[in-house]
Design a protein around this nucleic acid. Structure first.
Lengths: 144, 144
DNA sequence: TGCTCAAAGATAATAATTCTCTTTTAGTAA
DNA sequence: TTACTAAAAGAGAATTATTATCTTTGAGCA
């Protein structure tokens, strides 16, 4: 995914295209495994040694507001971020706190079908995501 | 649910039965809608005006460790606690940040069946919970 | 009834995030 | 191309949730 793509996305949302925004957006997309603000800051410091922590938080918030990123949290630790590319679920490793994306259209269809038949009274469903907790049972590094 | 029940539960886990532990455990069970540590402290201060914040956090941690409580988090705010241990899902209101339990055995069966057929490579599933985001479309207060 | 270790209390420390205020800059229009 | 302006970035203080440390208390048991 090219830098131009990120610039485009920002423009489409009516956001000013600043080097910081591009860098942060790119960082979240490139850093797999749902980086924390801290991970992002580390990563960016290479090219933007003077970036301010406050800026990173502010940019992350505005990217989330504009639905270019998503926040992800498990029960254990701090806020993490995810570049939304498609509907997906999360695998949480209860041992290592690793978070990994899980995409499964067949499953999505089953769940969508289920909720189109069975409504929840007093609640309008917008989005469903599964939190699948368990353990990675090998030591392969699940990065793409 | 009587106080005696909470004392029993603590004993069964080999935890010393202290007034603070009973009060905190009871508070989480009585306070619906997944209280934060702060909610719990407020609630408890009525009967235990001198309880220490550190104690509340320590007790909550040990109750979670002993599987008498669960931690719940959404993308927005601080850690919340849940006294319900039966398998259930959560409805998150994107407007009000309200969290509500959602129990649906039929759905659970569908999902369990699905994952018993289709394995995720390299990952051993322990628990699946749905995060259903949407909006409560009436102003009924969803407490029992 | 007294002993002992775990738990509670008090409060300092830490860490993540937000806020405030100043400076800079992207986008726009002359 | 330059100048203008509002929005964004920078700097660092402030806030908030949570954890850690150390002392005192009390639950469970001999």
């Amino acid at each position: 995914m090219t830098t131009e793509y990120f610039r485009e996305q920002l423009k489409l949302k009516g956001l000013k295209v600043t080097p910081q925004r591009v860098a942060i957006f790119e960082a979240v997309a490139n850093l797999r495994n749902h980086p924390t603000a801290d991970h992002i800051i580390d990563y960016i410091k290479n090219n933007h040694p003077n970036i301010s922590v406050g800026t990173v938080y502010k940019v992350l918030d505005s990217l989330v507001e504009n639905q270019l990123l998503k926040k992800v949290k498990n029960e254990k630790d701090v806020m993490r971020y995810d570049a939304i590319l498609q509907q997906h679920h999360h695998l949480y490793c209860s041992k290592t706190d690793q978070i990994e994306d899980f995409v499964d259209y067949e499953l999505d269809k089953i769940i969508t079908d289920y909720f189109s038949k069975k409504k929840i009274k007093g609640f309008k469903v917008k989005e469903i995501s599964l939190q699948i907790t368990g353990e990675f049972n090998n030591n392969s590094i699940h990065t793409k």
